[in-house]
Amino acid sequence: MPLLSVEDLHAGYAVGGQMLRAVDGVSFTVNTGETVGLVGESGCGKSSLAKVLMRLVAPSAGRVLFDGTDVAPLKGGPLKSYRRQAQMVFQDPFASLNPRHTVAEILKGPLEVHGLGSRAERAQAAGAALERVGLPRAALSRYPHEFSGGQRQRLGIARALILSPRLVICDEPVSALDLSIQAQILNLLSKMKAELGLSYLFISHDLSVVRYFADRVLVMYLGRIVETGSWQEIFSRPLHPYTRALMEAVPTPGRRRHAAPLSGDLPSARNVPAGCRFHPRCPLATPLCTEADPVLRPAGDGQQVACHHAPTGAPH
């Protein structure tokens, strides 16, 4: 049984009396010990999806099965215990740590709230959590602003791990960091996963980072998953024209001044194009694409793609 199983999830919010469907029928699973990468551009709904999975936002339809239990309708005590199991690492290590609290307060808070351990045990656990992420215990009495960006992200990871969760949702954990720090944090996340047997949902707009870090990849466009597969499949044999365009758009050494693969802007989730959502920007679009909305269908081993024109069946 997968650790997390998302089934036909919908979520949205009202903007000016209009319903904006940020997550529009998303299904996927995360297995124990697996890193699932979720890649997409801004406005594709990947952060909204993270918020729904963390139950910071209520879904409007669909199920989120965590270890077999639907967490979508949970409230009060059961919701609180779900939160011990699923934690989140945020994008901005400057905004997600309270500047008024010391590191000790930040790390002991979750333990206090969940009634874990005695006072001495909590202090001990906070120190241990710091050392685990490569910061010394002496940092306990400091404030977040005294740390560099990379070190703050280490604090964010320490806080997420202090409740010993099984699933960690990483929402763009390295995109606010400098390149020289990114590798440190990715290596740390990788080490934590191995040591603690974690599962990750790793959200990023950066394909190179997802390619390095994810076992399985979901590509999201306008609230839908348009392609999924193992990292090898997705990056060696991308089937959806959007996935291909995304990869082609990444500036790469060894290629010079190539033309942009896609024209036009990402449409707003407020008026989703009829038929295939990608058709206005798609180089392969045919009249069929303007009428019929393609669903995810198998294309190879575990690979699935939502495109009328993608080849199906196993790779030759």
């Binding site: 939160r83 011990r84 945020f90 994008q91 905004a95 979750p110 709230v113 806080r159 409740l163």
Partner: peptide, 10 residues
């Protein structure tokens, strides 16, 4: 985000 983080921590 710091408030979202607090919610997420229960």
């Amino acid at each position: 985000e710091l408030v979202a983080a607090a919610h997420a921590l229960g």
